[in-house]
Nucleic acid binder design. Structure first.
Length: 568
RNA sequence: CGCGGGGUGGAGCAGUCUGGUAGCUCGUUAGGCUCAUAACCUAAAGGUCACAGGUUCAAAUCCUGUCCCCGCAACCA
């Protein structure tokens, strides 16, 4: 048994996330956490909402709410949606927690003591009518290069040139449209990442087993030379630039930038968990207090990789304290929607609350993991979704269980028949499953989820092949006892499949177990053949129920109409 | 010449690091079975591996160049 710390990238507080966000971090982390728990490891799966920053302030203002209350409400909304997807967080925290305040201010203090923080005065755009400083992309104006009138302060969408907000002609606030803006000097803290390039590269170079995607993005940043990074903002909502209640002089009205405090919340949320459960958070995060034996795995979409390979490690290394750093980073590409981006603002694609209202979590979990964007971007389409669900879940798995359970009900009075002698067919079947079981386990350990799903599906198919060879319906006419042994073997397979499928489709796994008179998800087997005599002979089975319902063409037509399809 | 990822039968993917009969799922076609959710099992057809050069006995795989798609470019998070 080993200790596994698992985190998934923190979802931003504004709004319910879409399926692309889900498959890129939280869902695979959950599948991995469930798998590792099933294998008997001590797992702590931590996530939280990322609550600070300008968008949260603006969304709260638009809702006419205090930003703290807004975040509290949205946190609960998000947590409920994740629970609806059977995400098995050990803790789902908030980056605004007191624990994160303390940790963020502590790390800031250490970095400062180690000479890695400096004050830099820079020119910022201030909107007098909005009463606030504007982040670059909240300033709009005419592009000095191409004349595009709606260029943003960070980049012109029309000519793709990178801009500084002060470059814009006729700049205005993107919030109010006001042109009543001015450039004001503002002092900010910068983390001197440029001094840490060698140390970071040394750390990255030890990670020879990381995915190509992750190390190539990390090296790209290091090769280009790290810039010192501003870690404070002119906002009210956030963690004050202070230590032990005393603000840093000149920074009374500033807070830490969300990207400084958000990853620290991985630790903060663990401290929240510890306070709520009596656990010991330091044994998971301090290498001098037991965390040296922890294996820490981070899950995230590729947009987050620079912050986890460079930004967050810079904070931890710079503190010169023995903080736990990632042992493995699993990065994902994008899930697209009909070849284009899922878009929160453009309302393109499927959001988690809408998805769960259409179909139970397992349908989505299976589709998303079996098609996870691991090596390249992948594309969601309703037609593809229907084909995968109907074929894999209904026809291969659901129908396998159904044909056995119906036969048991009709021919064996709905009671589990006695086991008989295994013949060559059973022996060969078990050998085939054993082989797939090993590759499946390997794939899950390596976090190769697409391949793992394919292997699991292949295991389900062996069940159908077995029935075809054993033909209990034909044997029954001459030798009911022999047919009963086949059915008993098949019922044991249902139980085995429930155990193996549980990380991916936990609710279906539980229902499969119940269908063969077991309570809860069966324990993970150490091997296949010793797990084929777990059922109680004569136990009555509940009336067979359909495990997965097929998605009809009419539903697909309707959903494309609602959510948009190829042409939208 | 900003950077990264990708281009493999009709669709979705594996294989590329460590050259050596191009593999899987869906779809299509044919056969089988009839316990089952018109499902299951077996078999077949279908690919000049984006393009052009090069290295090699041998290239999807290594090298050079070109084209196309997606993303990123540090104040969105």
């Amino acid at each position: 048994m080993a200790r596994h710390l698992i985190t998934s990238a923190l979802p931003y507080i504004n709004g319910v996330k879409h399926l692309g966000n889900l498959v890129g971090s939280i869902l695979p982390a959950d599948v991995y956490a469930r798998f590792m728990r099933a294998r008997g490891h001590d797992v702590l799966y931590i996530c939280a909402t990322d609550e600070h920053g300008t968008p949260a302030e603006l969304a709260a203002a638009a809702d006419n709410k205090d930003v703290d209350i807004y975040c509290r409400e949205m946190h609960d909304v998000q947590e409920n949606v994740y629970r609806g997807f059977d995400i098995s967080f050990d803790w789902f925290g908030r980056s605004h927690s007191q624990q994160n305040h303390d940790l963020t201010q502590h790390l800031y203090k250490k970095l400062d003591e180690n000479g890695l923080i400096e004050e830099v005065e820079s020119l910022q755009v201030y909107s007098i009518d909005d009463g606030r400083f504007l982040p670059d992309r909240y300033v709009e104006g005419t592009c000095p290069h191409c004349g595009y009138e709606r260029a943003r302060g960070d980049q012109c969408e029309s000519c793709t040139k990178v801009l500084d907000p002060t470059d814009l002609v006729n700049p205005r606030s993107a919030l109010s449209g006001s042109t009543n803006i001015e450039i004001r000097p503002s002092k900010h803290l910068y983390l001197r990442q440029s001094k840490m390039v060698d140390e970071l590269r040394k750390w990255i170079d030890t990670k020879t087993d990381w995915p190509h995607l992750v190390t190539s993005i990390a090296r790209k940043w290091l090769d280009e030379g790290l810039k010192d990074r501003s870690i404070t903002r002119d906002l009210k909502w956030g963690i004050p630039v202070a230590y032990k209640g005393v603000p840093r002089p000149g920074f009374e009205d500033k807070v830490f930038y969300v990207w400084f405090d958000a990853p620290i919340e991985y630790i903060g949320a663990t401290a929240e968990w510890a306070e709520a459960t009596g656990g010991d958070w330091e044994s998971w995060w301090r290498e001098d207090k037991g965390a040296d034996t922890v294996r820490y795995t981070e899950f995230m979409g590729k947009d987050n990789i620079p912050f986890h390979t460079v930004g967050f490690p810079a904070t931890l290394l710079g503190s010169k304290e023995p903080w736990k750093k990632a042992d493995y980073i699993k990065g994902f590409n994008w899930l697209n929607y009909y070849g284009g981006k899922f878009s929160t603002s453009g309302k393109r694609g499927i959001f988690m609350d809408k998805a769960i209202a259409l179909l139970p979590a397992d349908y989505w979990r299976w589709y998303l993991m079996a098609n996870a964007p691991e090596s390249q971007d992948s594309s969601f389409s309703w037609e593809h979704f229907q084909s995968i669900v109907n074929k894999d879940l209904c026809d291969v798995l659901g129908n396998f269980a159904n044909r056995i359970l119906k036969f048991t009900a009709a021919r064996f009075d709905g009671k589990i028949p006695a086991a008989g002698e295994y013949g060559p067919v059973e022996t060969e079947t078990l050998a085939a499953i054993e082989e797939k079981f090993r590759t499946y386990t390997d794939c899950m350990e390596q976090m190769e989820f697409r391949k793992a799903a394919a292997e699991l599906r292949a295991i389900w198919m062996i069940g159908n092949e077995y029935l075809q060879r054993a033909e209990p319906w034909a044997i029954f006419k001459q030798d009911p006892e022999k047919a009963g042994a086949s059915i008993r073997f098949s019922l044991e397979l249902i139980r085995l499949f429930a155990a193996l499928s549980a990380p991916l489709i936990p609710d279906a796994a539980r229902r499969m177990a119940e269908s063969v008179a077991c309570t809860g998800i069966p324990a993970w087997p150490s091997n296949v053949k010793d797990n084929m005599s777990a059922l109680e002979t004569g136990a009555p089975l509940p009336a067979p129920e359909i495990l997965f319902k097929k998605i009809e063409d009419e539903q697909i037509t309707e959903w494309i109409d609602t959510f948009g399809g190829a042409e939208s």
